[in-house]
C-alpha cells in the first residue's frame, strides 16, 4: 500500500516502490484559488529535496512547488499544461504534477504524515 507524506510547504508525495508521485494539497489549491498556469519540470531533471521543481500561478499570485524528495523526474502530468483547473478539481488525484525516481528513501523521514499535516493546516486557520 502506498504511503503519502506531506511538506510544510503544502506538497504531497505518494510513494510506490522507488517512485514518488508529487502534487500540491487540497488546502494549497484552496488558498491559491483558480490556477491559470503550471510550469512543470523537464523529464530527466535531477532535483535535490527542497529544490524548486515547478511553478504555479493563479491570477494574482505565483508560487514555487518544491521537490518533497530528491531524485530524477521520470514523468510529468502534461495534461495540466492545457487544463490547470484539474488541480483545483482534484489536487490529490488527477491533479498530480510529476513523478520522481527517489534517490534516497531516508529523506522521507523528514516529511509529515497525514495527521501532522492536518494539524499544521488546522493551526493556520
Amino acid at each position: 500500500m502506498a504511503t503519502i507524506k506531506y511538506t510544510k510547504e503544502h506538497e504531497w508525495v505518494r510513494v510506490e516502490g522507488d517512485i514518488g508521485t508529487v502534487g500540491i494539497t487540497d488546502h494549497a489549491q484552496q488558498q491559491l484559488g483558480d490556477l491559470v498556469f503550471i510550469e512543470l519540470p523537464a523529464i530527466g531533471k535531477k532535483v535535490a529535496q527542497g529544490d524548486e521543481a515547478a511553478v504555479i500561478e493563479s491570477v494574482k499570485a505565483a508560487s514555487e512547488v518544491y521537490a518533497p524528495i530528491g531524485g530524477e523526474v521520470v514523468e510529468v502530468n502534461a495534461a495540466l499544461g492545457d487544463d490547470p483547473a484539474k488541480v483545483n478539481a482534484d489536487a490529490m488525484g488527477g491533479g498530480w504534477f510529476f513523478k520522481i525516481r527517489i534517490a534516497n528513501p531516508k529523506e522521507l523521514d523528514a516529511l509529515l504524515d497525514e495527521a501532522s499535516y492536518q494539524d499544521l493546516v488546522g493551526e493556520s486557520h
Binding site: F37, E57, S58, V59, K60, A61, A62
Partner: peptide, 11 residues
C-alpha cells in the same frame, strides 16, 4: 500579471 514585479518581485 504574474510575470510582473508587483506579484513576482525579484523573480
Amino acid at each position: 500579471s504574474t510575470r510582473e514585479q508587483h506579484i513576482r518581485r525579484d523573480k
